[in-house]
Amino acid sequence: MNKVNEWAGITFNSRDPVYAQVVRLFKEKIVTGVIQSGQTIPSRRELAALLKINPNTAQRAYKEMEDQRLIVTEGNSPSRITLELDVLRQIRAELLGTAVEAFVATIRNIDVPLDELLDVIQQKYTEAQAGKRQEPPEAPFESGEGGNNDD
């Protein structure tokens, strides 16, 4: 049941390879703690059905994640998220890096000294953290879509 809702309501960008977006989705879910290291993940076909994507695309995403040692598949048992701390640390650094790069790219044209920028970041970050604590822990995986529940 939870498994179904966890993957509902995800939309993809039609101009980037879908398999790469699936890999990124897994990385985000790992870094934000939505899926834990060592946890089993849906089969390729299950994931394709949950995300409404082509099964071969799901297969390719899993292959890519295996190559990046993000997931491990032993024999016939379901694939799991890796327990390797190195890999997990690397993903976190990667996501943080790309997010900051994107941020820098958007503000690059605004003429602002680094000190001032860092102050603004600190202020906004503190506000965001405070706001996060007041809300209930972001209503996990509730989506309005009803048609997804496989019995």
């Binding site: 101009r15 980037d16 790469a20 082509n54």
Partner: peptide
């Protein structure tokens, strides 16, 4: 192949 067009030309099927 749809994925190939997305990765090589950054285009969707609709594009």
């Amino acid at each position: 192949e749809c994925e190939q067009v997305r990765s090589e030309e950054s285009k969707s099927v609709v594009d």
